[in-house]
C-alpha cells in the first residue's frame, strides 16, 4: 500500500507540474502582449513597460517559468484587474460558498445516483431500468442553468416554497447573524445553534444544490448500473446465491461493495464537472461563490483571475483523483494488503 501511495503521489505531483506548464503557456506564451492583458484594457505604454519588467516578461521563457512557479508556490497569484486585490485571497474568500454548494450537491448525487443505478441493474431490461436510464441520460443532457431557472419558476414563483436566490436572506444579518467558523453557512449556523439562520441557509441551499446534482446523478447512476451489472454477473455472486444468502444482502451488501471501486472512479470526474457546473448554477442563483468571480473575470478579461481559477480547478481535480485512487486501493484488499 505504501509503495502504491508513493507512486501515486509522485504521479500527482508530476501532473500538477504539467498543469502549471499549461497555465503558464496560456498566461505568458500564447498572448502577444501578456503585460497588457495583466493590466487590463486601458493599459498605458509606461504601465506595460513596468509590468513587463515586474513579471520578467523580457527574460528567457524557462527563467520566466521558474519565476512563475515560484510565485504560484509562494501564493502570489497576481492581482485581479477587476477588484485590484490579490487573486489568491479573492479565490479563498469565495471558496467556502462554492464548496458548500458543491459538497451538498455531491451528497445528493451520490445517494440518489447510487440508488438509481442499483435499481436499474436489478431490473435490467425491464420498465424500472428503462425509467432510470431515461432519468440518468436526461440528467447528463440537462443544461444546469436552464434547470435552475425552471426550478426557480416552480418552487419560488408557483409554489412559493423556497427562496429565489442568494445564500441567505438579507435580514438574517440583522436578526440572527452567523458566526464564522468554517465559512459553510449551514454548518456554522448549526454548530452555533443559530436555528433561524440555519433554516434560512438550508432553504437557500436546496434549489442550487439540486440543480447542480442533476448531472452527477446521471453519471453516477450510469456508472453504478454498469458496475453493478458486472458485479452481479460474477461467480462469487452466484455462489452467494447458491448458499442461500438473501437477495437483498446479495445486492446491497455484497455486489454493491464490489461495485463501489469503479463507481468511485466516476466520482472524481463528477466532482470536476460539478466544479465548472457550479459556475453556471451560481450565476443563476446569485450564489456568491467562485462562479460569479470566474465569469466576471472571463467577461472582463481579468487575466490573472482566470488563470488563478484554472490553476486551482486543475489542482483540485488532480487532488480529487488522487483521493479517489487511494480510496479505491484501500477498498480492494488485493491492493491494500500488497
Amino acid at each position: 500500500m505504501s509503495r502504491f501511495l508513493g507512486r501515486r503521489l509522485g504521479t500527482a505531483i508530476l501532473v500538477l507540474f504539467g498543469v502549471s506548464l499549461v497555465t503558464f503557456t496560456l498566461a505568458r506564451v500564447i498572448p502577444s502582449n501578456p503585460a497588457a492583458l495583466y493590466i487590463g484594457p486601458r493599459a498605458r505604454a509606461e504601465e506595460i513597460a513596468r509590468v513587463t519588467e515586474e513579471l520578467g516578461l523580457n527574460r528567457p521563457l524557462p527563467l520566466q517559468y521558474l519565476d512563475y512557479m515560484g510565485d504560484m508556490l509562494t501564493g502570489d497569484w497576481g492581482t485581479s484587474i477587476g477588484t485590484k486585490r490579490p487573486v489568491l485571497s479573492e479565490i479563498l474568500d469565495r471558496l467556502p460558498a462554492t464548496l458548500e454548494l458543491l459538497i451538498t450537491a455531491m451528497v445528493i448525487a451520490v445517494v440518489f445516483g447510487t440508488l438509481l443505478g442499483v435499481l436499474s441493474a436489478q431490473w435490467r431490461g425491464r420498465p424500472p431500468d428503462l425509467v432510470v436510464r431515461l432519468i440518468a441520460i436526461a440528467g447528463v443532457s440537462m443544461p444546469a442553468f436552464w434547470l435552475g431557472l425552471l426550478l426557480q419558476v416552480l418552487f419560488f414563483r408557483q409554489l412559493d416554497l423556497l427562496p429565489l436566490s442568494g445564500r441567505l436572506d438579507t435580514d438574517i444579518r440583522f436578526i440572527s447573524p452567523i458566526t464564522d467558523v468554517t465559512g459553510f453557512f449551514t454548518i456554522d449556523a448549526f454548530v452555533t445553534g443559530n436555528w433561524v439562520a440555519f433554516g434560512d441557509a438550508a432553504a437557500h441551499l436546496v434549489l442550487p444544490a439540486v440543480t447542480l446534482a442533476a448531472y452527477p446523478i446521471g453519471l453516477i447512476a450510469r456508472m453504478t448500473r454498469a458496475s453493478m451489472l458486472e458485479a452481479l454477473g460474477q461467480d462469487y455472486v452466484r455462489s452467494a446465491r447458491a448458499y442461500g444468502i438473501g437477495e437483498r444482502t446479495v445486492v446491497y451488501r455484497l455486489a454493491l461493495r464490489n461495485a463501489l471501486p469503479p463507481t468511485l472512479t466516476v466520482l472524481g470526474l463528477t466532482l470536476a464537472y460539478s466544479l465548472t457546473g457550479a459556475f453556471f448554477v451560481e450565476i443563476v442563483f446569485n450564489w456568491p461563490g467562485l462562479g460569479q468571480f470566474a465569469v466576471d473575470a472571463l467577461l472582463n478579461v481579468d487575466y490573472p483571475a482566470v488563470m488563478g481559477i484554472a490553476l486551482l480547478g486543475a489542482a483540485g481535480y488532480v487532488l480529487i483523483n488522487l483521493a479517489v485512487d487511494i480510496a479505491q486501493a484501500w477498498l480492494d484488499p488485493r491492493v491494500r494488503l500488497a
Binding site: Y236, N258, P333, R334
Partner: peptide, 13 residues
C-alpha cells in the same frame, strides 16, 4: 455446492 474455481467463487473483498 462446491464450485470449479475457488478463487472466483469467493468474494475478493
Amino acid at each position: 455446492m462446491i464450485f470449479q474455481n475457488p478463487a472466483s467463487a469467493f468474494n475478493p473483498v
